[in-house]
Structure formats: structure tokens, C-alpha cells
Amino acid sequence: MGSSNKKKKEKKKDFQKAKLKIGKAKAKAANFTDTSFKAKSIVVNQQTLVTDTSDTAEQFKQNLSLAVNAKADNQRRDALAYITNQLSANPRNNPLGTSGVLTKLLPLLSDGSASVRTQLLKLFRVLVPAEVGPHVEKVLMYIRGGMTHLSNDIRNDTLNVLEWLLEVAGDETASCPGGWLKTLNSFSSMLGWNPSVGSAMSNKGWTSAPRATLGTKKGPEAQARQIQVLAKFLQTGFRPEAPIQYSPMAYRDNIYRLPGMPNPFAYLNLFGTPRDEDSEMYPDRISRQRVFDAKWRAAISAGMEGARKEGGTVGRAAATLDRALSAGLG
């Protein structure tokens, strides 16, 4: 019938050979796809292949950018390792200065790869401690971001960085704007010892919601570690200041000399936005004690009691915290 005839013809068509003709281009295949394109500019999304070993400064910069931008984890880690080597060499090779390295690498604190984060901590440890001091505020911002990150691994690794920071520039950490209360906020939220959130939510019903569902999975070791670092942080904050040695020139220096540190009048907050209670700076031990007493003492001691009853590593860590507290406030 008609339709089968048609089908026959169609079938025939499939196996017909195309005639080639001289002087004419070959016909395009049926499944030919045009892949040519037009673009105003072409972005080559690759690293340069040339490695010029002669210029160490250039190489340092290249590795620095690799450490931030490279897509592969290993490449980032290797670049960080290279920079660590350069910084720990004798004499140390750092063409950008500590501030340059820090501003570039701080976003890596919440990097997805664990190896990159450990390597980053190693790198931080070889930085010159005195040069980290002026950048504490910035480092703390990233640390706070990392401490409240969704991923537990990143939180824990960030604690290591905080520990390093406390070792390197403890006083600045506690006294910089936002350094005291905001960090305490992060700690409390990490541990789930949060009076404001807990009361706000649990008052509304007769059941109390179980503590932090995400936090329960992190295990006792992680919690113990968090308590330990908190204890260290509090110790640093409550450390009594060494009395300043009397020098007869101090008064005149204060009046006539240029101050030796960056931003000496930071506590006046002349040019920044007005600060609230959390982001205020608490420059001395007494003010820190006072604000801690008012805001966090009850919550932290309550949480600590709970932790002590758990026993084990957590209990031991809580005991350390207790000691730090009683020493600091007593």
C-alpha cells in the first residue's frame, strides 16, 4: 500500500551514496555540528606553563595566587607548602610582607579540603609573631566565620588557628574591637551554651528542644577540644597585665613623640561606624571581667557544670575551664 511504498523509498534514501564532484566542497554530514563561535575576548582559564625559577619574588606571588585560586586541592596545598618553605628559610623570603600574605590567605580558613587547612596552619606558625599583632582584628573576623561554619571539621580546624593566635598575640586578641564578646558569642554557639537563644525558644512550649542537632554529632573529643580552647581564651583574657615599668620620659613621650603602634587611638573609634556592645573593645582586664560577669558567667558556668557531670575527656576539659575561671575572676 501507499505507506509501505513510502517506507521503502525512505529506506532506500538512507543507503544512497552522495555523489562527489570535482571542485566542490564535500557535503556536510547529516550530524554535522557547527562549533565555530565568535567572542569579543577570549579568557584562557589556565595557569601559565612557564616556570621561571630565577625570580623568587615572582614565584612567591605566583604560588600565593595559586594557593587561593587553584581548583585542585593538591595544587593549593603544594602552593601553601612552598610558601611555608620560603617563610621558614633563613633568611626568610617574603616579598609581600606578613600583611599581604595574611590578607590573601585568610579566606582559606574555611577551605573545603582538610589538607589545605592543616597546611595553612603550618604556614601561620612560621609567620613572625610580632607582625601578626596589627592584623588580629581581621584574623579574628575570619576565625569567627570559621567557628560558626556549618561543617564540623572546619570549626575544629579554626580552633587550632585561634589557639595559634592566642599564642602569638594573646593580648591583642582579647582587647581588639569585638575580640572579646563576639568571640565569646561564637564559643557559646559552638558549645550550645547559649542563654539567649535557648530561653527565647524553649519558653514557648512545655518541651525543651534537644540541644543543637548538628552539634550532637560532633562527639566528645570535639567538645572537649572546644572547652579547652575556650579555657585558654579566658585565661588569656583574664591574665593580669604586667605593671608598666616606670620611666621618667613616659609622660613627655606620650605628649611629644609619635606613637609606636598603628592606630593608637583606636579605643576612641574616631572614624569607624559606632560600635554596639558586642563589637566594643575591652582593652583591660577589669572591663573584660565586668562584661563577662554581666553577660556570660551564668551561661558558661551552667554549661560547665553540665559538662563536668558528663565526665571523661569533656569532664576533664571542663575542670580546666573551671580552674581558668576561678583564677581569672577570683
Binding site: 579566606p107 573576623m141 575570619y142 569567627r144 566565620g145 560558626t148 561564637s186 554557639s189 537563644v197 542537632t213
Partner: peptide, 30 residues
């Protein structure tokens, strides 16, 4: 919302930290 208040509080702090980072240097932030 009640059970996840703690988690939200975490993220609120994270938001605040990121905001601080951003505000401190809006033009050079990565």
C-alpha cells in the same frame, strides 16, 4: 524553627562575621 534555633544562631554569627569582613574592605574582598 524552634529545634533549629541554635543552628540558625550559628549561621547568624557567621553572617555577621562575613559582613564584617565585607564591610572592612568592600572593594578588595575576595
Amino acid at each position: 524553627p524552634r529545634s533549629y534555633a541554635q543552628e540558625f544562631y550559628d549561621q547568624w554569627l557567621a553572617y555577621d562575621a562575613q559582613r564584617q569582613i565585607f564591610i572592612s574592605s568592600p572593594s578588595t574582598v575576595s
